[in-house]
Design a protein around this nucleic acid. Structure first.
Ligand SMILES: [Mn+2]
Ligand SMILES: [Mn+2]
Length: 284
DNA sequence: GAAGGTA
DNA sequence: TACCTTCAACGCCCG
DNA sequence: CGGGCG
C-alpha cells in the first residue's frame, strides 16, 4: 500500500530536525552519457529507460551564489529519481521553469508544450469554463531528466490522482511558518498536534520537508470523497489545533492576519491546487 | 527553452 | 536575422 | 465583483 511508496521522502515526525535537501556538485556527473562535439558547441545525450534524452547547456549557471549549473541540477534529479518518482508518478505536474537560472524571472508552465516528445505522459485537466490543458506526468526517470533539461527546477504536483482527478487519495496539511522566521519549534509542534489528532482518528500522517521552513503532512484516505469534503475535514482538524493554541497557529490565509503564527493551509485540498513535490529543488 | 510574431 | 513576448489557470476565500 | 493567496 502506499505508505511503502512514501517511505523514502518521509521522515518520522519526531526525528525531523533539519529540513534541507541540497543540490551539490558531486565529484561525478550522472552516468550513461555519450558526448558529441560539433565545433564549438557540444550537445550531449543520455540513454535512460531506453530513451535518448538530449541535454543542452550543462554548464549554464543556474544558481549564481554557488555557481551550481543546470548540469548539477540534472545530476541531482538523476540521483534522487528513484526516491522522488514513486510520490508523483500518478499525478499531473505544474512546472516552475527557470531557463536563465535564478537571475531570470522564471515562469509557471501547466500546459505541456506541443514540442514535448510523445513519450512524456500527460493528463488532461478540464477547465471550469470549458477547454483543458495537458499536465505532464513524471512516471519515469527519462521524463524527470527531460523536464530538468527543460529548465524545470521545481515540480508542483496536483494531488488528484490521474485515474480519477476528483477523488484524491490523500489529505494534505501545508504548514507555513511566518516569512523570514528562524523559528522551527512552532511548526514542528504544530505538526505534532495534527499528528496526535490523526492518531486518535486512526489516520496516519506522513511528513514531508519542502526545502523551505515548512512541512507538508500527507494523510492517506479512502477515495470516496471529493476535494470539498476533504478540505472541510482538514479545516475541522485545523480548528481543533488552532482552538487550543490561538497564539501560535492560524487558519487565516491572509498574510496580515497571520501575525507571526503558523498558517495551517488546508486549502491545498482543492482541485487545481498544487504543492511542492518531495525532493523538488527550490529556487533559492 | 522554445515557439511565434514583428521589425 | 534579431529581438521581444509568452508560457498560470484555477479554486477558494474575504472584503 | 476584485484581489490575495498558492
Ligand atoms: Mn508551504
Ligand atoms: Mn501554503
Amino acid at each position: 500500500m502506499w505508505p511503502v511508496l512514501i517511505q523514502e521522502a518521509i521522515l518520522d515526525i519526531l526525528e525531523v530536525t533539519s529540513y534541507q535537501c541540497r543540490v551539490e556538485r558531486t565529484s561525478q556527473r550522472a552516468p550513461f552519457y555519450s558526448l558529441t562535439v560539433n565545433g564549438e558547441s557540444e550537445s550531449e545525450r543520455m540513454k535512460i529507460d531506453g530513451q535518448n534524452v538530449e541535454i543542452s547547456n550543462r554548464d549554464k549557471v543556474f544558481f549564481p551564489d554557488t555557481h551550481l549549473t543546470k548540469g548539477d541540477v540534472i545530476d541531482y534529479y538523476v540521483k534522487i529519481a528513484g526516491s522522488m518518482i514513486p510520490h508523483i508518478k500518478h499525478h499531473g505536474i505544474s512546472m516552475q521553469r527557470f531557463p536563465d537560472g535564478l537571475k531570470g524571472s522564471g515562469f509557471y508552465n501547466k500546459d505541456a508544450p506541443d514540442y514535448f516528445p510523445d513519450w512524456i505522459k500527460t493528463v488532461q485537466f478540464a477547465k471550469e469554463g470549458g477547454g483543458s490543458f495537458n499536465a505532464p506526468v513524471v512516471d519515469k526517470k527519462s521524463s524527470l531528466v527531460y523536464l530538468a533539461d527543460q529548465a524545470v527546477l521545481t515540480f508542483h504536483p496536483y494531488w488528484g490522482r490521474i485515474d480519477d482527478l476528483k477523488h484524491p487519495e490523500r489529505m494534505i496539511f501545508d504548514l507555513d511558518p511566518p516569512k523570514d522566521t528562524e523559528d522551527f519549534q512552532n511548526v514542528r509542534d504544530c505538526a505534532q498536534e495534527i499528528q496526535d489528532i490523526l492518531e486518535r482518528l486512526d489516520l496516519r500522517g506522513w511528513i514531508q520537508t519542502t526545502g523551505s521552513m515548512g512541512f507538508h503532512i500527507h494523510v492517506p484516505i479512502i477515495r470516496e470523497f471529493g476535494f470539498d469534503k476533504v478540505r472541510e475535514f482538514a479545516h475541522d482538524i485545523g480548528l481543533l489545533v488552532v482552538k487550543a493554541n490561538k497564539d501560535r497557529y492560524t487558519l487565516e490565509e491572509r498574510e496580515e492576519k497571520r501575525k507571526g503564527r503558523v498558517f495551517i493551509d488546508f486549502l491545498r485540498n482543492s482541485y487545481g491546487a498544487t504543492s511542492v513535490a518531495p525532493y523538488a529543488v527550490r529556487a533559492r
